[in-house]
Design a protein around this nucleic acid. Structure first.
Lengths: 212, 212
DNA sequence: ACTCGCTTGCTTGTTGACAACAAGTAACTT
DNA sequence: AAGTTACTTGTTGTCAACAAGCAAGCGAGT
């Protein structure tokens, strides 16, 4: 067992079972992301995913159980990425500052990893369908984001940097709806959205609406 | 050929071919709406649609060509309904008045025909997927709505009822994104959105942001 | 008004693609 | 060497799409 072959990520022939499965899982999730971008979820088949990842047609189904299960794994992986990016950017700020920092973090995330946001939003959109297996993940994610914003507003009110006659939960819902809707419009017609300007206007609106 | 049987809409046994096909088309579109609400588009089959409409498993495919073709017909039919409702409500108003009237018309539409909006938005969400056959319809619809709002803003600026330093197109995009995002959040967690309050706050925000 | 040939509405038969699962083989582990 | 895990191949049932046929309207010529 050479140290060299162990240290190379995505080595052609990893030694341990754990490495092998982690590598094939990751390869399939990456393949799925690429295929969702090219063909959408409906026209992406488990056979295509397995084979593009360098395996057989059956592996994806064997490992993730169902097609929906695999897509959930894809979505969770992107959500984790975004959440950690967001946490770093907000970093304890509250009130209008936190809201603006989060909007700016989203703009930077889209600039750096546009495909991640495209895939995530395609999956989130599918959650709108009844009986969608992604529904719960989308619901929890949006609920958490609404509550986070509501919390920033509440703390801003405590600080006195936010008007005292607003409803934090309503502001949270409007904030999240706005980001989500803009992302949707960007997916539908990418050239119609100038994220830099949209973000500037959005932050201006937040100040105008919430500042005392 | 009795006059009586001709005049009864959805007669059990319509006489002319045109009547027969119009009736079966309408029945299948209604069946599709109900099934999309119950099961989502993916788990709705052409067989279920045909049979719920009172026909065979093959008719939907024969008449609309493809499953996507049928869903396009469903979407167009709901969009026509909403557009005519909107036109009546706005009725030549411009500026902030038009924007508030449109938001209020949307609230009333959702109150009266929530299922229509649910089905429409499920279809619009699917348009986010690449290669979706509903993409073009969604794009045109949202583009037109953005332009309508931008036009209201422009005319409001001419009148002097809207601040002169705003960008009409940016306001249009934000308005549409907001409505679309809110509708999405309502689909994902219906109880989280109080449309009356959301609308009141939205209209307040429009005035606060756009009034000179 | 009648009917014969044409058109249109609708159904049933069939094919190929697909997800899901079962059963097997090969790679690792202790 | 025995057991566990990674992966592949075989199979089944469901589905969309299409093709071929039957039956219900329709219209021109008598």
């Amino acid at each position: 067992m050479s140290v060299i072959s162990r240290d190379i990520a995505h080595d052609a022939a990893p030694r341990t079972q754990a490495e092998r499965s982690a590598q094939s899982d990751a390869a399939m999730i990456e393949a799925a992301k690429a295929l969702i971008l090219e063909r959408g979820t409906e026209k992406t088949t488990l056979q295509l995913i397995g084979e593009r990842a360098g395996y057989s047609r059956g592996l994806a189904s064997y490992r993730f159980g169902t097609k929906a299960g695999l897509f959930q794994a894809v979505g969770k992986s992107i959500l984790r990425h975004w959440m950690s990016h967001l946490d770093k950017a907000v970093d304890g700020q509250v009130g209008i500052d936190a809201m603006c920092a989060a909007a700016e973090a989203y703009r930077r995330f889209i600039e750096k990893w546009p495909d991640e946001i495209r895939v995530l939003h395609i999956l989130l959109c599918e959650a709108a369908s009844p009986r969608s297996e992604f529904r719960q993940i989308a619901d929890e994610s949006y609920q958490r984001q609404r509550e986070d914003v509501a919390d920033w507003v509440r703390r801003g009110m405590d600080q006195g940097t936010v008007r005292s006659d607003v409803d934090p939960r309503s502001e949270g819902a409007r904030y999240v709806a706005y980001i989500s809707g803009m992302t949707y419009l960007w997916l539908i017609s990418p050239d119609a959205i100038d994220w830099q300007r949209v973000n500037d206007d959005f932050r201006g609106q937040i100040r105008r609406t919430l500042a005392p």
